[in-house]
Simulated scan of single mutants.
Amino acid sequence: MKLGIIGGSGLYSMPALASGRQRAQETPWGWPSDTLVEGEIEGLPVVFMPRHGRGHRIAPAEINYRANIAALRIAGCNVIVSVAACGSFRDELPPGTLVIPDQLVDRTQGRDKSFFGEGIVAHVSLADPIATDLAARVEAAAGAAGIPHHRDGTYLAIEGPHFATRAESRLAKAQGFDIVGMTGMPEAALAREAEMAYAIAAFVTDFDAWKPEAVSTTSVMEVLAANAANAQALVAALCRALRDEPLPRPSAQGWERALDTAFATPRVEWPLEPAARLRAIAPRLFA
């Protein structure tokens, strides 16, 4: 098992990988957000990538999500944990809380959301977009690290880069969403297409705009700095757990064979060039 860690806002490096190998990994969909860092944490092979690039240079809508997921897949990862920042729609989830959602709602626009097309059509199941076995390990790691946390809930993915209006925030709260972020989709969908386990470790930084105080980048970054140590501790505890007990297969969501029933286009009709690109994310089918 090889774990990919995608670092979100405030998490641009992993000190535990300070001596790791830098890897510039081009993909058929272009370059990922930054170089990958490969090494071991607590004896588990790990690859780290900062989603927004080091120095936070890439806005949510500008991220090449396909290249990020493909780069981790090419590097040998079959498990991804996204460490992210989020806003909260619930008083019980104050800043500093770690939320491990089990569902997502996608309200992003204009992003490249699939590896498929151009002659090869596939529809993966996203009924349960989060790998529950992996989410359970993240929850256990949070407990072991003493991090306040909450399991389950719905992550609302918005386009950004602006924060929500008060009306948008209050509507999302009334609809029953738990947290809001700008990067959970299409990341989760692409990970499923690449037959990888995916879970989100979302650290709450604010209450969005449904409360009187308005969220600001300054306030978010202040909370992110305080959350950084917890993020590092969470990853270390998770790596220990996965080292000692890898994820079971077959999985509850069947992520490791998600493409088996996804293709609408018969294999004999697959064009050569798109099929060659897809080897990067599904080598067992396109080798």
Results as ranks from 00 to 15, higher is better:
Leu3Cys: 03
Gly8Ile: 09
Ser13Trp: 15
Leu17Phe: 09
Ser19Gln: 01
Thr27Asp: 03
Trp31Thr: 14
Pro32Arg: 10
Asp34Phe: 05
Val37Tyr: 02
Ile41Lys: 00
Pro50Lys: 02
His52Glu: 08
His52Tyr: 07
His56Cys: 10
Glu62His: 15
Leu72Glu: 03
Arg73Ala: 10
Ala75Asp: 01
Val81Tyr: 09
Ser82Arg: 12
Ser82Tyr: 10
Phe89Val: 00
Pro94Trp: 11
Val99Asn: 07
Ile100Gly: 01
Phe115Pro: 00
Gly119Ala: 10
Ile120Tyr: 06
Ala122Thr: 08
Val124Gln: 11
Val124Ala: 06
Ser125Trp: 10
Asp128Thr: 13
Asp128Arg: 09
Pro129Asn: 01
Ile130Ala: 12
Ala136Glu: 06
Arg137His: 13
Arg137Ile: 15
Val138Cys: 09
Ala140Asn: 04
Ala142Tyr: 06
Ala145Cys: 12
Pro148Tyr: 13
His149Gln: 13
Gly153Gln: 07
Thr154Asp: 11
Leu156Trp: 05
Pro161His: 06
Pro161Thr: 06
Lys173Asp: 02
Ala174Pro: 02
Phe177Tyr: 08
Val180Thr: 05
Gly181Gln: 08
Glu193Leu: 03
Glu193Ile: 02
Ala197Phe: 07
Ala201Lys: 04
Ala202Gln: 13
Asp206Phe: 01
Glu213Trp: 07
Ala214Tyr: 07
Ala214Trp: 15
Val215Asp: 13
Thr217Trp: 12
Met221Asp: 14
Asn227Val: 10
Ala229Cys: 04
Asp244Lys: 11
Asp244Asn: 12
Pro246Tyr: 13
Leu247Glu: 04
Arg249Trp: 11
Glu256Arg: 11
Arg257Ile: 02
Ala258Asp: 10
Ala262Arg: 02
Trp270Asn: 12
Pro271Thr: 02
Leu278Asp: 09
Leu278Met: 12
Arg284Ile: 04
Ala287Gly: 12
